[in-house]
Design a protein around this nucleic acid. Sequence first.
DNA 1: GGCATTCGTTCGTCTTGACGAACATCGTAA
DNA 2: TTACGATGTTCGTCAAGACGAACGAATGCC
Lengths: 189, 189
Amino acid sequence: MSDTGPAPKPPIEVIAASLRAERVRAGLSLTEVARRAGLAKSTLSQLESGTGNPSLETLWALCVALGIPFSRLVAVSRPQVQVIRAGEGPAVGSEQSDYRATLLAASPPGARRDVYSVAAEPGPRRSSAPHPPGVVEHVVISAGRAVVGVADEPVELHPGDYICYPADVPHVFQALEPGTRAVLVSEHR
Amino acid sequence: MSDTGPAPKPPIEVIAASLRAERVRAGLSLTEVARRAGLAKSTLSQLESGTGNPSLETLWALCVALGIPFSRLVAVSRPQVQVIRAGEGPAVGSEQSDYRATLLAASPPGARRDVYSVAAEPGPRRSSAPHPPGVVEHVVISAGRAVVGVADEPVELHPGDYICYPADVPHVFQALEPGTRAVLVSEHR
DNA sequence: GGCATTCGTTCGTCTTGACGAACATCGTAA
DNA sequence: TTACGATGTTCGTCAAGACGAACGAATGCC
């Protein structure tokens, strides 16, 4: 469910819709966007109508002209508001130590990050096995103290402190005070 | 700095590197990937060497063959460990009320999220103008209480509570207690 | 009304990307 | 050693995409 499978949609139509949507949203004319992107109007017209198979260069020029990140062209969907109260939500426990991570926002298909709430108590050092390659974890301490980071050189963090480290190598989270809380963003790119 | 500008890199080279990296990561030969994607070996060879300007169809076929999301092709870089102590880092203030957001992890080129630490004091309701379309914000309360969410129907949150809402519409963050702290992930997809 | 400007679409031409065969290279087994 | 299979590269051919001119339609200005 937090996989990273390829987006399953026919790409041309998605991009066609995105292009037109982004353009009108920016309040630009087709002619103007084509001019900024250095493309022929005809090319853009055909793309927005779902005809054709644009080259990377063409798509890139359009992203620059529209001022949008590349990934915007292949993403769609409109999210909802969701609230998870403290203590609710699926929790991932640990046998090694008193450590509980609650999944707040699972990575939807095509997205690349999970958001966790972490509650930990002092105990033996808890080290995580490496995650798949490319995973980065961000941790912000909410309360207490903890030693966090890659297993080789972890860092002691206090409330408000932030750390970012690659998680595809062994890494640790060890609470130093009772009631230690943190927010963890696991970003698999 | 938290803008949504397109990744400023020459895209062909980035994709070339990504393609080769993903392929060897999957333990596949160039010939095999080309076969699965229904492409000519020569095409893939040229792409991995940074030559050429692939069509969308070609790129898509490769994503499917490699089992990776489209966006993986435009993301790169290998991160370092970075620590930002409480109070450090670039802060974004607000004149409207006592609200300070510290940028912890800016979105690297091709990535899609900013991580902020938020400190706010009670005061008049602080509402943010809509962000670019597609932006989603995740908020976890560390301390205090706050009213958060879309301007129409905000939600009162307590420590440990989590909310996720679309940020391309007007939204608010209003502290209800002194010393209110939160972690905010702004995700622009 | 008449003229000008801008919009987005359609069509013919030419550049360019994808193909497939041939190639050099390496590793393995007969 | 020779033969075979698999790897990844280079080169000529062909189809497909990008271009630019021309078009009909809509709006604004004199």
